[in-house]
Amino acid sequence: MISGAHVIVYSQDAEKDRAFIRDVLGFPGVDAGGGWLVFKLPPAEVAVHPTDGPPRHEFYLMCDDLDAQLDEFRAQGVEVTRPVSEQRWGRLTAVRLPSGAELPLYQPLHPVAHSL
């Protein structure tokens, strides 16, 4: 039986991005040994989209109130890297991780499966 999913975010400054996940996002975690932090994620879901190009994977964080979440991030000095765009499936933006990478964030307007 599948008991969970493990997401890996590759980073050019893993230590700073781990601190962001711990301190800014507030995700609890465990030290898997030698400082390798593994964080508990909120409930999750997976979708499979068709593509004409090579297969790829994406990682988004979901929130119930995008505007309130962005206000909270800005108050903590987090850079919002994209203006909020209104998609038919949700409201989309991204924030900057300390490594310089973007972390997409959206407020879904579609039915969600993570609480089934």
Rank of each mutant, 00 (worst) to 15 (best):
G26I: 07
T51D: 01
Q87G: 05
I2L: 12
P43M: 06
Q87D: 07
P43T: 06
A32M: 11
L25R: 00
L103D: 14
G35T: 04
K16G: 04
W36R: 10
D31V: 11
A19F: 01
D52Q: 11
A5D: 09
D64I: 12
F73N: 02
H110W: 09
Q12A: 14
E86M: 05
V46Y: 02
F73I: 03
H57W: 12
R82I: 00
V95I: 15
A47W: 01
V30G: 00
R82V: 01
L97Q: 09
M1Y: 02
Y10E: 12
S11E: 09
P50R: 14
P28Y: 03
P43A: 12
R74P: 05
F73V: 09
G53M: 07
I21S: 01
D13G: 06
P98M: 04
H57L: 09
F59E: 00
S3F: 08
F73Q: 02
T81A: 07
E72G: 13
R96P: 01
H57T: 14
P42N: 10
G35R: 08
G33R: 08
F59L: 15
G4R: 07
P42H: 10
D64K: 15
Q87Y: 14
P104H: 07
P98V: 03
D71G: 05
L116R: 12
K40P: 00
P111I: 00
K16P: 00
A5Y: 13
A14P: 07
H49G: 00
G90L: 03
V112T: 15
L41M: 15
D67Q: 11
H57Q: 15
G77H: 06
E86P: 01
F59W: 06
A5T: 15
A94D: 06
E58P: 00
I8C: 00
E86C: 04
L109F: 01
G4K: 07
R96V: 02
L61D: 02
P43L: 04
G26T: 05
T51H: 04
R96S: 12
G100C: 14
P55E: 07
R91Y: 13
D65L: 10
A14K: 11
Q107M: 12
F59Q: 04
D65H: 13
E79D: 13
D67H: 11
E72P: 01
Q87C: 01
Q69V: 11
